[in-house]
Design a binder for these strands. Structure first.
Lengths: 307, 307
DNA sequence: CAGAGACATAAACTGGATTTATGAGCAGTG
DNA sequence: CACTGCTCATAAATCCAGTTTATGTCTCTG
């Protein structure tokens, strides 16, 4: 009779243990406004609804989150911490929303973006959020693909602005570098390489079977070029996620964009392995049809992606 | 009559535009297992429930997410992208859950952790997740405070392991450095400093009014020490979040831990300002009462926090 | 051609969140 | 000192979304 859960230890889904997004958003509003009623008003619900939602969230978490008083509500210490954690969930949800909005092509879209997968996955939602906060009325549509399809979209005027991550710029396009990406070698913390003191020499990397993206992917191209076409696959997988999962499970060393593994590194599910004598850098570029300099919303978005 | 929403342009809450956590989790399971029914089984619901949930998510987003066939379901291209974004939301929710679980003190906790705010906010949830995946049965309780309260908790045997981020180790405690943190100067992209080409000299930083945490906070101590006690507050705020919000709104330059602003930097809500002639580094340390080397679960957690 | 697996559809059920309506505590004001 | 305005709490009725149960359709396989 530890508490109330009768799950009997089955892990179950986290959705049952985490308040829903509406509740988290409400908590943020309460934190910001210092009032349940005010927060309710902002979210377009009634005050009793807000009151009961916060209360059931407190019941669910087993912690008092707000100090209610007749002249307002303030977060408890635990509430402040929970709110900070909640903010991260809500921000991830906002990025999801920005991306999802762009995915459904609408004819009235003012800005049609084509992006390669890594950029669409990790960077674009953030840019779209920033764009939305500057120009709330700009409807954006997104087409994700590889460098080739991005080029096709641009040249056939099905997209206004593109983003690619390859080594070279597809012909017929102008480009500007917007950021740099580094490929890094990672392993599970249990892998022998994770205990090495010295960097792994490039030659050893080239002779070690690695978990890799499939041949032809942007990631693979960069690695093959840096190693001189020598990369040895232990497994070839068709998505970044699959590569990560495989590396986390300890199958071997993987080569991935640092964009893809931020979370895993900070939670120690993966460890970065220094490599000597090898620079696995690539440029992230914005591209557009030669001559057609981005204007209007495209220029706006472009300016968000650079310093 | 753009589509179906009758909100008339009011921003509304994102919770109505983003599928709930259960649906996102279900989508991840479908992606992993390649089957609606299989995913349903894993989450402990029936197949029709899963089918209808995915369908309503597709309706909500206006995009087909899975290709159903009589021999399984595979993600569409858009579905793969959405799934990647969903994964980030679910991971944030899992971190929330790990933190929240630890917040309700349970008497049967095997491991009692005391941590200063920045660490509790940004790093601990990840560590707890990792710990949970290694030792699912370790019940952890968390007490958040400043360096002083962490020391008190440890010395009065109300905590087994502590984490602090100050410049010095409180007396009576042994410690080990687990990571390094850098304070950085940030402004809104609209701030004049964001357009400078050259780094800001330390002397100019010292003479410029800054948005700062209150005197006595770990962040402030480091800055004052580095500048020789000269930091000039433009405003003093009592939470990292408040400082960030103030900086984002363009009030002025702020000094914050780089842990706190990762999201804001990548979405360009804030811009990092290089500073010359000043190192704003601090160590993050695990601490324990002198002599009482961490053992058992505490040792386990400690080993997760280091390379 | 039968069996297994995977998804779709329809109808009834269930529970939790919301609204409406009302009460009560605390502060500032004339 | 009572009035006004803010806050939050409580109770009862309502409503909707997700779920289950039961069944049908399709495809591949042996």
């Amino acid at each position: 009779m530890s508490s109330d859960e009768t799950d009997g230890g089955r892990e179950g889904s986290i959705a049952h243990r985490v308040p829903d997004l509406g509740a988290l958003e409400l908590l943020l509003a309460v934190a910001r406004l210092g009032s349940l009623g005010g927060a309710a008003r902002e979210l377009g619900i009634t005050q009793p609804a807000a009151s009961s939602r916060i209360r059931s969230m407190e019941r669910q978490l087993g912690v008092a989150l707000v100090d209610r008083s007749p002249r307002g509500s303030r977060l408890t210490d635990a509430g402040a911490l929970v709110t900070d954690w909640a903010r991260r969930v809500v921000e991830a949800a906002a990025a999801f929303d920005a991306g999802a909005q762009a995915l459904r092509h609408r004819r009235d879209s003012r800005l049609r973006v084509a992006a390669s997968m890594t950029i669409a996955e990790y960077l674009l939602p953030g840019w779209l959020l920033a764009l939305r906060s500057q120009r709330p009325d700009t409807a954006v549509s997104l087409l994700a693909g590889n460098s080739t399809t991005v080029a096709e979209q641009l040249l056939s005027d099905e997209a206004d602005l593109g983003f690619v991550e390859g080594l070279s710029v597809p012909p017929g396009l102008d480009s500007t570098v917007i950021a740099h990406d580094h490929l890094i070698v990672v392993t599970a913390p249990t892998h022998p390489w994770a205990r090495r003191r010295r960097p792994v020499p490039a030659t050893e990397l080239a002779s070690t079977p690695l978990i890799l993206r499939e041949k032809g992917s942007g990631t693979r191209q960069v690695l093959d070029a840096a190693l001189g076409g020598l990369a040895r696959p232990l497994i070839e997988l068709s998505s970044t996620t699959a590569v990560k999962a495989s590396a986390v499970s300890g199958a071997g060393p993987a080569v991935l964009s640092e964009l893809a593994v931020g979370e895993e590194l900070s939670t120690r599910r993966l460890v970065r392995i220094p490599v000597e004598g090898l620079t696995l850098a690539r440029d992230l570029r914005a591209v557009w049809p030669t001559g057609h300099r981005p204007t209007g919303p495209a220029r706006e978005l472009l300016s968000l992606t650079r310093g």
